[in-house]
């Protein structure tokens, strides 16, 4: 508390505005002033405290409300059975009429000369020194994520009970591009003799960053929301990068070294297929599938 305050031409107005004390100059014992207004100050304090409590409760209510929503989504993600029931408006998929779409993704132009990864920072890293940014063998483009972007309506799908695996081996992620369903369990293993940290940097999912010592137990993670090309990196080994694709439907594939993909089990209908590459961007194609159709849909990216 101020012991002595020097006030020039100051209006000191009490908090209710009934009394005022005008001081032209000189020194005023602030303690005296405070003492004379202590009761009103107390009332104000009570009011302030009350308002603060109300605000705090309101904030807490909002926070809990938002968290509930968040938790609901996370729970949906973590519980494999929660999304199992198909929506009332969508007809169940009849396996007898299911169609297939497949094709090859090509790279137009010459593939850039791959750089070299320098793993000398960590002697325990003994992997291949070739980055997987653009992998094209004889014009066939690998690591393109292909998924049904539009046409499934409001169908919902069972989350696979089987886990999918990300392996850290030779200080690189295997696979480089992975597709999973929302809520599907991902097992992350470290087969290297060094510590890695796994750090997804999502836009729509929760970010996390965990280290994993050599031969440690596998981490088990799920992602609750759809997200395409979610980067995952290791901050200990800056060349280690991969992309995770989280989908609500099981209709997705990743092109192999031969550039080929295949999506099976689609119900007849009109679809938009998206082809996404980490560097070359996204390209869409429309396709109409009749019952038991098996169509070929190729795509090419320009370098």
């Amino acid at each position: 508390m101020i012991g002595l305050a020097k006030v020039n031409r100051a209006y000191l107005v009490n908090l209710r505005g009934r009394e005022s004390l005008r001081l032209r100059s000189g020194q005023v014992r602030a303690t005296k002033f405070c003492k004379s207004n202590s009761r009103k100050g107390d009332i104000m304090n009570k009011k302030t405290w009350s308002a603060m409590w109300v605000l705090c409760l309101l904030a807490l209510w909002l926070f809990v409300g938002c968290s509930k929503k968040e938790n609901t989504n996370e729970e949906q993600g973590t519980s494999p059975s929660s999304e199992a029931k198909p929506a009332a408006t969508a007809a169940p998929i009849d396996p007898a009429t299911a169609a297939t779409v497949s094709g090859t993704v090509k790279l137009d132009g010459t593939a850039p000369k791959p750089g070299k990864i320098d793993m000398s920072q960590d002697p325990a890293c003994k992997g291949t020194n070739t980055p997987e940014t653009i992998v094209a063998d004889a014009g066939n483009l690998a690591n393109v994520f292909v998924y049904v972007k539009d046409g499934l309506g409001d169908r919902t799908f069972d989350v696979p009970k089987d886990s999918t695996t990300i392996d850290q081996k030779g200080c690189q992620y295997h696979p480089h591009v992975l597709g999973v369903m929302t809520g599907q369990n991902i097992e992350i293993r470290n087969d290297d003799d060094t510590t890695h940290n796994i750090h997804p940097t999502p836009k729509d999912n929760r970010e996390w960053n965990e280290s994993q010592p050599p031969k440690a137990a596998a981490l088990e993670k799920t992602f609750a929301r759809e997200e395409v090309m979610l980067p995952v990196k290791c901050n200990q080994h800056p060349w280690m990068k991969m992309y995770l694709n989280v989908m609500k439907s099981p209709f997705f594939a990743v092109t192999g070294k031969d550039g080929k993909y295949e999506i099976k089990g689609l119900p007849p209908g009109d679809y938009t297929l998206a082809f996404v590459h980490e560097k070359l961007g996204e390209q869409d194609q429309k396709v109409t599938l009749a019952a038991k159709d098996s169509k070929t849909l190729d795509q090419s990216f320009k370098q």
Partner: peptide, 9 residues
């Protein structure tokens, strides 16, 4: 002091 390799260094 952790093992000073990679980014940890």
């Amino acid at each position: 002091i952790p093992q000073l390799v990679g980014g940890v260094k």
